[in-house]
Design a protein around this nucleic acid. Structure first.
Lengths: 188, 188
DNA sequence: TGTACATCAGTGAACGCGCGTTCACTGATGTAC
DNA sequence: TGTACATCAGTGAACGCGCGTTCACTGATGTAC
């Protein structure tokens, strides 16, 4: 049953990609290794040839999800553009392929150090990127506004998913698009 | 082993309160009924004399958590006050007794109808309350700003918990307190 | 107020099931010569 | 280039454990008279 090195590497990639999707869809506690392996077209016994534990896979899956997001975001050039790309019904309805922070942010507190560390780096990077799109007097004020914007974007996506009412859900996306996509010139 | 009606009612209350705390601390999938019952000082077999299922308990626990929050918030009289009460290190560090939306919002998508319905009602109520604290030309603009503020508050609390770095965590709380506690007079 | 009996909250064992992890095994791949 | 053997990715059964739920049982409470 041995498989070429390339095949093994492909299988490993597929496991990580599948896990990245399923964790975002069902939560870290909501998917088992057997489901992930089966979805990747393998049996669960082979898992430990690739990863040391489920936590280890979670760390790679989170890193992968973040890497994909970052890559896609490369073309984005303004806050308005970011908000209108991020806060869409499509993104809301496709958790498995969307923002890791909005999908798994609430469960991060209970995750291991490697997962949280990667998430924290990502948050810092996003704050820096958003701050660059904000007009303001001082770097400090821009960073403050960037943090609030990041919280608003991720919070709005999470709320739009949590809520049971499709009208309210769309309204949340639209309101946050408007407010966070057009940063105010703040007083004082 | 029968117990007085009052005792039974007290036990039931204790189960709901314990569940409300443990669900917020560990997530819906992260606590078992045995842990909840043991924490409430009972054995797990008696659970079904009080509730039809774990989902049923989840609905009551969420309703209870929301009710307690709403009651505590009664005295709050301004957006600035709300933000400075909500975005504290203490609230961040005490998930079990804090905001249900920030603690469980990300898991709501996978919950049953009764849980999500109650959450949705709560979100509508909060939007209404916040809108009342916002100055603005039209009711529509106030509501839009209220939605963004709610997303920002819950998102900031979630982010401050998710992140691994205590300095960044405090910074997130402070920035969101500043931005969402002082709503701008927005242009256009 | 006292007695006889039905009720039912709570106990603890058991159910089938899925979990994360381990392990003996398979057999094609990779390597040494 | 060909042969012999070691390697190891993947299989499938098994491990102990905890889950949500069920159930026979207990015995104090509640009720009917």
């Amino acid at each position: 049953m041995r498989v070429t090195r390339e095949q093994a590497a492909e299988n490993r990639e597929r496991i990580v990609a599948t896990a990245a999707r399923l964790f975002r869809e069902k939560g870290f506690d909501g998917v088992g290794l057997d489901a992930i392996m089966a979805d990747a077209g393998l049996t669960h016994g082979g898992f430990y040839r690739h990863f040391r534990s489920k936590d280890d896979l979670a760390a790679e899956a989170v890193a992968r999800g973040i890497a994909v997001s970052t890559q896609r975001q490369a073309a984005t050039a303004s806050l308005r553009e970011l908000a209108s790309r991020y806060l869409t019904p499509r993104h809301r309805d496709d958790r498995g392929d969307g923002c890791v922070v909005a999908a798994l942010g609430g469960e991060m507190v209970r995750q291991g150090a490697p997962v949280r560390r990667r998430l924290t780096e990502h948050v810092q990077e996003q704050i820096g990127k958003i701050a660059g799109w904000i007009a303001g007097r001082s770097a400090r004020a821009r960073r403050e506004q960037a943090i609030a914007t990041l919280a608003g974007l991720t919070g709005a996506l999470m709320l739009s998913r949590a809520v049971d009412d499709p009208v309210l859900s769309d309204e949340i996306l639209a309101a946050a698009r408007e407010v966070f996509g057009n940063p105010p010139a703040r007083a004082a």
